[in-house]
Write a protein that binds this DNA or RNA. Structure first.
Lengths: 208, 208
DNA sequence: ACAAATTTAGACAGGCTTGTCCAATTCGTC
DNA sequence: GACGAATTGGACAAGCCTGTCTAAATTTGT
């Protein structure tokens, strides 16, 4: 395990103040001196950990959003599968859980570091997701007022049943993820199911 | 400020390991020795803080649930007002934010302490809320499949727009709380709005 | 006003952690 | 095999924190 990975693990488990450089070195399988040679001091190491996690998490999120069902065959099934992918690959995995915990625990102590995360992560995630939902609405599959609100509510709904598990740092089972996603998507579609006259059809008519 | 209140503040701000008894004493306006006289040691003080917060938060939650609109005049407006009360009095207030942060940061280190919170807090909260929604459904105001799922999704929806603020330990403005509640309740009703033939009417007919 | 209980300030030991220094060892590469 | 670079283990100082102790000051109850 690399030094940064070991540090992520220890910072998450023990908190910044409680994290011990000796323990990080031991967990990484290197000597303490090597940690200092590579990363300078504890604070620089922490920053490196956060940047590393932010980068990997964002990459995973945007890779997953790229698999959004733009042309769904079975909208419910496709959205459920997308929500499960999102949870499995971005939110429940090691990086996601670690980053969330670090943000919650140390976010107030490093405002500039996490402001950067906030702008490059959630803001862009929501925009990208909102654009996909807007497209579904435009094609008549959904009836949405504000796509940004819909995107945030989609994420909130498909995670609704996992919040306690997340709070305690746990990892939900595959079955829990599927159930939460299924219930969430059904409610989402109950609220936003498409109307009979999609915008696409209307536009086609105007052009005809 | 009491010792326990000051300790809650410092534990939240600095984490368990980073919390300094001298700082707690100073913030409480007493000497360090008094802290030790009253609470024994750091760990006992931490347990006292968590128990205190858990108790007060639960009391606030159940007091707020008691104000649930069982016989709504304007269902949307009544649910929005309820959601705002819930957020203001239980989730965004000092105790709620502190307890959440302590659970997230130290939950894994004190499993038995937070298992107790979990059983007396979220479990009972969801049951109580589910019962209220079931009653609304029975009276024909809502059309709900599983009341427990509906209760969790209701809370998830009305907080959907506040999650980032909560993550960073911030306090949303009154306007943000209202907007999130309004958007959440509208989506909730979009998915669960009552049917024309309420169970109550059917029951009345059976009895007639 | 007086006596008991509590609180206070400060000193103090013990332990732990960070970050540095250094000599010895190992590793990568030619 | 040889040479330079990186790694290692350990010692080390300095600082911080916990928890205890003590004697003085303050508050409380009567």
């Amino acid at each position: 395990m690399s030094v940064v990975d070991a540090a992520a693990s220890v910072f998450c488990r023990e908190g910044y103040a409680g994290a011990n450089i000796d323990l990080i070195a031991a967990e990484a399988g290197v000597s303490r001196q090597t940690v200092y040679n590579h990363h300078g001091d504890k604070e620089k190491l922490f920053v490196a950990v956060v940047r590393d996690l932010t980068e990997r998490c964002n990459a995973g999120i945007f890779a997953t959003i790229a698999s959004f069902p733009d042309q769904p065959t079975d909208l419910e099934a496709d959205l459920i599968a997308f929500a499960v992918r999102m949870n499995r690959n971005c939110i429940c995995n090691r990086d996601g859980r670690f980053l969330r915990k670090l943000i919650q625990a140390e976010g107030e102590r490093y405002p500039e570091l996490f402001a950067e995360w906030r702008q490059q992560g959630p803001s862009r995630t929501w925009s990208a997701l909102a654009a996909r939902f807007a497209r579904l609405a435009f094609a008549g599959h959904l009836s949405i007022g504000d796509p940004d609100v819909a995107a945030r509510q989609f994420l909130a709904l498909v995670n609704a049943e996992l919040q306690i598990t997340f709070m305690l740092g746990g990892m939900p089972t595959e079955e829990e993820v599927l159930r939460s996603a299924t219930n969430g998507v059904r409610t989402f579609l109950g609220a936003f199911a498409g109307k009979k006259s999609p915008a696409g059809k209307q536009a086609a008519l105007v052009h005809a």
